[in-house]
């Protein structure tokens, strides 16, 4: 989808120095903890922008407490039928694969929640009877937190489709600096929407059978998207060695280990980032960024050859 000023998300137009996504497969492993601490640790070295793409349950703002200055409505273009022009020919219903428009008796019914906004019905209506109106599905908010430029999306309650909101958030990738994308959990379309077109994906997991199972799914996902990845093991020390053995076998670098520490959990519960609560972690995250940069550069060279 194109944004108003015509930039593209996919393709070559984006020249950001580095776009790092943070994903996990399993929820609650510490994606947001890693994304926010990484952003804060780079803040003095690079211009940093954080995009919270977990639009169903955005949490990064709770930790970074940005001052929001601007808001943009995300809407999907849905059809509106001019009944004076409509001949009830049924072409619109025939081309809509989402069953969002139907001709019933003498009426054309529209089911806005099912519409993906593809535009086929309005374009293909032989009478030109269909125009489009925006239906709000969420918002994107912009703010500042310290030196960090902050953008997040919020899906409206009761709405099913997260990808349009995620796409709108991703329009705001920082061209001149570092962009950190906090992805939603899982491996299906909202996650791929968030992770695709990033230079590197940090996969946050925990050393349990749940963590391992979902990590393997997440690794399959980033491989499919052809994005280099590395792992952060959170709550290191609980559980078993399955994640470590898997990473070793697959040749996936373990970038950082964060131990199980009730102090960290308590800071998090109060909305305090790891590096604010325990500044000694700042250096570890800066090092993580250096390794990510190195691996991503190498991968980029590999791709271009």
């Amino acid at each position: 989808m194109r944004c108003q000023d015509g930039k593209r998300v996919g393709g070559k137009e984006i020249t950001a120095k580095m776009i790092i996504s943070v994903a996990s497969g399993k929820g609650g492993t510490g994606k947001t903890l890693v994304a926010t601490s990484l952003a804060l640790s780079l803040n003095n070295r690079e211009p940093v922008r954080l995009l919270d793409c977990d639009v169903e349950e955005p949490n990064a703002h709770i930790l970074l407490k940005p001052l929001f200055t601007r808001k943009q409505v995300v809407s999907i273009p849905i059809p509106r039928v001019d009944e004076t022009k409509c001949t009830l020919c049924g072409k619109c219903a025939e081309v809509c694969v989402y069953n969002a428009i139907a001709v019933v008796g003498e009426k054309v019914l529209i089911f806005p929640e099912l519409c993906h906004g593809c535009g086929a019905c309005s374009y293909l209506c032989p009478e030109g009877a269909i125009s489009e109106v925006g239906r709000e599905v969420g918002v994107v908010e912009f703010g500042q937190s310290g030196g960090i430029e902050f953008v997040h999306g919020k899906l409206n309650i009761g709405e099913a489709m997260a990808p349009p909101v995620i796409r709108q958030v991703k329009m705001h990738i920082n061209r001149g600096g570092v962009t950190i994308v906090d992805a939603p959990p899982g491996t299906s379309c909202p996650v791929t929407e968030a992770v695709k077109d990033t230079d590197f994906c940090v996969l946050v997991t925990e050393p349990t059978s749940f963590g391992l199972n979902d990590l393997t799914l997440a690794v399959d996902m980033v491989k499919r998207l052809n994005i280099p990845c590395g792992v952060v093991i959170n709550r290191d020390g609980v559980g078993d060695r399955g994640v470590e053995e898997y990473c070793l076998k697959e040749g996936i670098p373990i970038l950082l280990r964060i131990p199980l520490d009730i102090k960290i959990a308590k800071f998090y519960s109060r909305g305090i980032t790891l590096v604010d609560g325990m500044p000694e972690w700042r250096e570890s995250f800066a090092r993580l960024f250096d390794s990510v940069k190195q691996i991503a550069r190498k991968a980029r060279r590999g791709k271009s050859e």
Binding site: M1, G119, Y123
Partner: peptide, 27 residues
């Protein structure tokens, strides 16, 4: 016409971006 930017400049469809709307197929 594709609103999901699923077709690249070599006219190959990216299955991850394609939402299966069939608009391209129809036109």
């Amino acid at each position: 016409l594709c609103r999901f930017e699923a077709i690249n400049d070599r006219f190959v469809v990216d299955p991850v971006s394609c939402e299966g709307c069939g608009f391209c197929y129809n036109i």
